[in-house]
């Protein structure tokens, strides 16, 4: 071949230990420890047992974070998930009250979510000119709207027989089932995104969709799949929501999409696509969960907690940009 100049190109990766520590994930781990120390100092009851006891109601949102990370890496957004949770919770409560076997209730919950996700995916792949933002905005209104219709004028449904849901809210020792499930799902999702060909292709699509398409990536199939899985996991999230509140109403899951996006973005997953990994997302999710529990224990105004989260979210995205800009400006100045 042409390569006769005998130039050789190195293929040995750099030692990445230093990189790991100074990466955003490294910062997040330190932040996680700091948050826990902070919570312990402000609250006397902040210990492992209490944290695990209060965790389930926050953990359910991590089910949404996982597929949301994939969608954000694609450079897209799904703001309909909160409504999918609502619809799925509503329907599973209703079928549960009909007295069918609990395993079927679980299936129904997941299926409803999957169906909603498929609707999003189908519209987005069929009409790929449409921005995901506007499509999921519309389906957000529709899915919650359907739940509202199903719930009728009362606007809520409660379980007449909560045995099944009580069972999935159970624990091994002090650790709730959901904790194990979240960890398993998180590991699977992180491995898929980080280590498999599928994950690589998702990153390729998020960084440069055209190049990915020209390089033979099944762009449509992957998008459809991810939105569908988003729906399915929203279904699982809904089941755990029901298991902690024994019912559903028109506001179930409202704002969850924002929480999931905030966790992911705070974890370093860029909303413009192609950047970040799930390790960061999951650590940041636990930071937020611990912070909420700790601040909740000292009876901090829940609105104040939201305010802090909002500031954190904006700073997490804005600070790197601002720093880069300042560096750039300095470079230009020094050149002159």
């Amino acid at each position: 071949m042409a390569g006769k100049s005998g130039r050789s190109i190195s293929a040995t990766p750099e030692n990445t230990l230093k990189k790991t520590i100074f990466s955003w994930e490294g910062v997040l781990v330190i932040l996680f420890i700091a948050v826990n120390i902070f919570c312990m100092t402000i609250s006397d009851v902040y210990n492992l047992k209490n944290v695990l006891r209060e965790m389930p109601k926050y953990l359910a949102e991590i089910f949404l974070l996982l597929p949301m990370a994939f969608i954000l890496v694609l450079g897209e957004i799904d703001i309909s998930v909160g409504s999918i949770v609502c619809l799925s919770a509503t329907v599973s409560c209703m079928v549960c009250n009909k007295g069918i076997p609990f395993i079927c209730v679980i299936l129904v919950g997941i299926l409803v979510g999957t169906a909603c996700g498929m609707v999003n995916g189908a519209i987005l792949t069929k009409f790929d000119e449409l921005p995901p933002m506007i499509v999921t905005l519309a389906t957000q209104i529709i899915f919650r709207g359907i739940a509202e219709i199903a719930l009728g004028s009362g606007g809520s449904v409660s379980l007449s027989n909560a045995d099944g849901f009580r069972a999935i809210a159970g624990r091994v020792g002090i650790v709730p089932y959901i904790f194990f499930l979240v960890i398993i799902f998180a590991v699977i999702a992180a491995v898929i995104l980080g280590k498999t060909t599928f994950g690589r292709r998702v990153y390729a699509m998020g960084t440069n969709r055209l190049t990915a398409y020209y390089s033979g990536v099944h762009v449509k199939k992957i998008r459809f799949l991810i939105y569908t899985v988003m729906g399915a996991l929203a279904g699982i999230c809904a089941l755990f929501m029901v298991s902690s509140s024994y019912g559903a109403n028109t506001t179930t899951g409202s704002g969850f999409e924002m929480d999931a996006i905030a966790m992911a973005v705070f974890g370093g997953i860029s909303s413009t696509g192609g950047k970040g990994n799930l390790a960061g997302g999951i650590i940041s999710a636990f930071i937020i969960v611990c912070l909420r529990i700790g601040l909740g224990q000292v009876n901090m105004n829940p609105q104040l907690i939201l305010l802090i989260l909002g500031v954190l979210l904006i700073c997490a995205v804005a600070l790197p940009n601002v720093i880069a800009e300042i560096k750039n400006a300095r470079k230009v100045a020094s050149r002159k």
Binding site: M1, A2, G3, K4, R7, I9, S10, A11
Partner: peptide, 15 residues
Amino acid sequence: KNLLEEVDTKAVDIF
């Protein structure tokens, strides 16, 4: 690495 050398790319490493 092999392919990039084959087309004689002027690069330091593959990263």
